[in-house]
């Protein structure tokens, strides 16, 4: 998917104070670990206050990915950034619950828009447009 040296890397996008990660398809163990590392480095470098992980493209989940999500949330919290997981599919949610991974420390949202609202302060009813610098 990604040519050259960046093979198997998930891109981390920066939107103002928020980092946006979109995971498409199945995440390999090595890619997940790479992402974990990239995220912590980017947070430290940019001073981001929020991380949005969009997993609406993930159809299959295992206990490893569940743990990776929990660890990303924990390490981001250490770097003063809040993590929101977005767009989890019903089947994935059921699988995680059946695995016993309820991920209590993790914030969740239905859409990226809601996640942005959640991270950039309390908003009124409806989606507020995000003004990016």
């Amino acid at each position: 998917m990604y040519p050259g040296g960046a093979a198997g890397r998930v891109p981390v996008l920066k939107l103002g104070e928020v980092l946006l990660v979109t995971i498409q398809g199945d995440l390999h163990d090595s890619t997940a670990e790479q992402l974990q590392q990239d995220l912590s480095e980017t947070i430290a470098r940019s001073g981001a206050t929020g991380v949005v992980i969009d997993i609406s493209g993930v159809e299959i989940v295992d206990s490893f990915l569940g743990r990776v999500l929990a660890e990303i949330a924990a390490q981001s919290a250490l770097l003063a950034a809040r993590t929101v997981v977005v767009g989890m599919r019903p089947a994935v949610a059921i699988t995680l619950v059946e695995l016993g991974l309820t991920l209590p420390g993790l914030r969740t949202a239905l859409s990226t828009e809601q996640a942005m609202d959640l991270l950039t302060g309390p908003s009124r009813l409806g989606g507020r447009r995000q003004e990016s610098p």
């Binding site: 989890m88 949610a93 059921i94 995680l96 991920l103 969740t108």
Partner: peptide, 12 residues
Amino acid sequence: MKTVAAARLMGA
């Protein structure tokens, strides 16, 4: 509890 936890994971 399971249903509640699953819904929470999805952001509801």
